[in-house]
């Protein structure tokens, strides 16, 4: 069970330039993977192709062995959920509950099941205090959690989060961790695009680096986040604790403050 991306190339409709070229990667079920890289490196395009919003011009994507080209986006979506970078692009109902229930009702799930999933999604994402509000009156960072709740309710096997930490405060980051743990415990794969290296180092096991429309590295986080040449090529800096550790000449591959302080003591 996995998403297998095989040598895909894609250019957006009406654009001559390719957005990704010959990209390959495999996301196993239950994995936590982060994709890092500069804006324009092809990260969002790659995950949109996995969600089958677009179909690759060349190459194939298999979701649990099913070729996405032979299915519509709507058929793939129950397996691969995608939380957009900008929540405003994703919300289209004028009511929080309606927004969460929209797809569940579309799929004609039993009323009891809908209620259960909705309540669980609201609790996990911590948006209970905002349920009564109009989605566009909810503060932007929390609006993002509404879009996460929508995907949690659908409960796909692969969850893709696009820049979840952007604009989040301490509450948001902690809540995000709750969501990730919940998904992990349910056996879901979580794939995240992020610029936030502390978040990546803390929450993920595997890191994929993208640059100039392609994958330039893929592996265990501690290994990848210490490949300085690769990171430089992708215009990415390692976590601050790693930068400090290197600057003061600590040999261990430090990734967070706890490790750093232990090394100093």
């Amino acid at each position: 069970m996995a998403i297998e991306v095989k040598n895909i190339t894609f250019s957006y409709p009406g654009s001559l330039a390719t957005a990704v070229e010959n990209v390959s990667m495999t996301i196993e079920k239950g994995e936590r993977v982060a994709i890092i890289g500069q804006n324009g490196a092809g990260k969002s395009t790659t995950v949109k192709l996995m969600n089958n919003i677009y179909k690759p011009s060349k190459g194939t994507i298999l979701v649990d062995g099913i070729d996405t080209k032979e299915r519509t986006t709507a058929q793939i979506a129950p397996h691969v959920g995608y939380v957009f970078q900008n929540p405003n692009d994703q919300i289209f109902n004028d009511d929080v509950v309606k927004e969460i229930e929209y797809v569940l009702r579309y799929r004609k799930l039993p009323e009891e099941e809908i209620r259960k999933r909705r309540e669980e999604a609201i609790d996990v994402t911590g948006i209970r205090p905002y349920v009564e509000m109009h989605p566009f009156d909810i503060p932007l960072p929390i609006r993002k959690f509404l879009t996460i709740a929508v995907v949690v309710a659908v409960s796909p096997d692969y969850v893709i989060l696009d820049e979840p930490t952007a604009g989040q405060d301490l509450w948001g980051c902690a809540q995000l961790k709750t969501v990730m743990d919940y998904l992990q415990q349910k056996g879901k794969a979580v794939l995240t695009i992020s610029h936030d290296m502390e978040y990546v180092a803390e929450n993920f096991d595997r890191v994929i680096v993208m640059a100039h429309k392609n994958v330039i590295a893929d592996g265990e986080k501690r290994d990848i986040l210490y490949r300085m040449d690769t990171l430089r090529e992708a215009h990415v800096k390692p976590p601050l604790s790693a930068q400090i550790a290197q600057a003061v000449g600590i040999r261990d591959k430090i990734l967070n403050l706890k490790e750093l302080s232990a090394a100093i003591l």
Binding site: L170, W171, E198, S241, I244, L257, K258, S261, I264, L265
Partner: peptide, 20 residues
Amino acid sequence: NGVRIPQAVSLARELWQAGK
């Protein structure tokens, strides 16, 4: 008050808690 602090300060707090 739930305000984010710089990592350098967090590090200092870790060390302080460890007694050094």
